[in-house]
Design a protein around this nucleic acid. Structure first.
Length: 372
RNA sequence: UGACCAAUGGUGUAAUGGUAACACAACGGUUUUUGGUACCGUCAUUCCAGGUUCGAAUCCUGGUUGGUCAA
């Protein structure tokens, strides 16, 4: 079996190579460059160390190694998407787009297509069910990264391998240490990958500039202060408002009038919601929930990357009542709203983020939609 | 112009003679492959000048600034 392993130079993907070799495979290692180096002086992405380590890993395990650049694709799909989304007042999720469009999208088309499988260092697993492959959660629920994979499709999931999905992070580090991998003690990467050391606000400012507007208390309509542009704040956010007497949280925005609404105090009602409305929900593998317009289904879900799942019920409401055929397969294409009623109130439900739905055992990752 | 009141860190308050407290913000860090949340840490000798006192943010005098009422 031909396997392409996506290796970044971090512990996780290093151990992927180790495990694949252990299992008797001979993967070809790919390092994907996605930095923004040529873009308007935004040279960053200290990828040298990453590449050094990946080279070392490839040599140590005797694997073929290729560095490929998907920089162009990344810019056009992920960075542009991020800027556009923020501009519209929504909260983007670049890392989900990166998985969907770059690692398993552009990479597949250009290089991955020649391989039987693509292996990555995601904390996730796949499960055979109904003789089909489902994306499923990792053994280490704290590190579970299925949320970021919620947008991939069946073609992608059936080609993926997650060699460390059945390990705890601790075990991965131990394996790396035993194998004396240079990445054994490296700090986990975090934050939007393409930004590297660039500050998020600086990035936004660079492309969207600044535009002063009022911050208004939602409950009273009182003007509390000024912001530098609604795009610097997202729903649920506390940091950055600069208002005293708080804590203040962003609870709403008016994009047309450039207004940010805030609410004061811990656990105020305005910060929470129990209803999550989604558009464009898609199942990754297949519909296991049945006809959601006649009957809601019990599920677990996440509205952001968190260790815990929230229990709720999902249902579907078509826009027009006139459609009569309740055919399950047509459900995906039908226009309407998927509604999750959460069992507990959630803080910071932000439009533009994805709602990722899991089965009632918190095992299978069924699909996702955009929160509207 | 007169009277009265107030004046503490970026903000709002606390400490009324015993050596500056609390919250928010900001900054730094931890957690997190989004943004964010949460958690931890840092941040003032009290408007100015004199005086009383062993000792003053707290008392007195003058000034400066702000506010309220009077005109």
């Amino acid at each position: 079996m031909n396997i392409a392993a996506l290796v970044s130079g971090g512990v996780d993907s290093s151990v992927v190579v180790h495990r694949l070799k252990e299992q008797g495979y001979d993967p070809v290692i790919f390092y994907i460059r996605i930095g923004m180096e040529n873009e308007q002086g935004f040279v960053d992405c200290p990828s040298e160390e990453d590449i050094e380590i990946t080279t070392y890993i490839a040599r140590k395990y005797g694997c073929k190694f290729e560095i490929v650049s998907l920089h162009q694709e990344y810019w056009e799909n992920v960075v542009q998407y991020t800027i556009d989304t923020v501009k519209r007042g929504l909260t983007p999720n670049p890392d989900m787009m990166c998985n969907k469009l770059i690692k398993f999208g552009a990479f597949e088309q250009k290089y991955g297509k020649d391989f039987d499988k693509i292996a990555t260092g995601h904390y996730a697993t796949t499960t055979e069910y109904h003789s089909k492959t489902f994306l499923s959660t990792a053994k280490d629920s704290f590190k579970d990264q299925t949320y970021f994979l919620g947008q991939i499709n069946y073609m992608q999931v059936s080609k993926l391998m997650f060699p460390i999905g059945d390990l705890y992070k601790k075990e991965v580090r131990e394996i790396a240490a035993q194998a004396k991998l240079p990445s054994a003690t490296r700090k986990d990467s975090q934050g939007i990958c393409f930004l590297g050391k660039i500050n998020y606000n600086d990035f936004i400012r660079r492309y969207l500039g600044e535009k002063k507007g009022p911050i208004i208390e939602l409950e009273t309509g009182r003007k509390l202060g000024e912001h530098q542009g609604f795009w610097f704040h997202t729903i649920g956010q506390r940091k950055g408002l600069g208002l005293s007497g708080g804590p203040w949280y962003v609870v709403g925005k008016n994009v047309e009038e450039n207004i940010i609404y805030a609410s004061r105090g811990y656990d105020t009602e305005a910060q929470y919601g129990k209803t999550i409305k989604m558009r464009g929900f898609r199942y990754i593998t297949e519909d296991l929930l049945g006809d959601l317009r006649s009957q809601s289904a019990n599920i677990f879900f996440k509205i952001r990357h968190t260790p815990d799942f929230t229990a709720g019920k999902i249902r579907f409401e078509p826009f027009s009542v006139k459609t009569e055929k309740p055919s399950i397969s047509s459900l995906e294409k039908e226009d309407g709203i998927w509604i999750i009623e959460s069992e507990e109130p959630l803080q910071g439900i932000a439009s533009g983020q994805f709602g990722v739905v899991y089965d009632s055992n918190r095992k299978l990752c069924l699909g996702s939609g955009i929160i509207s």
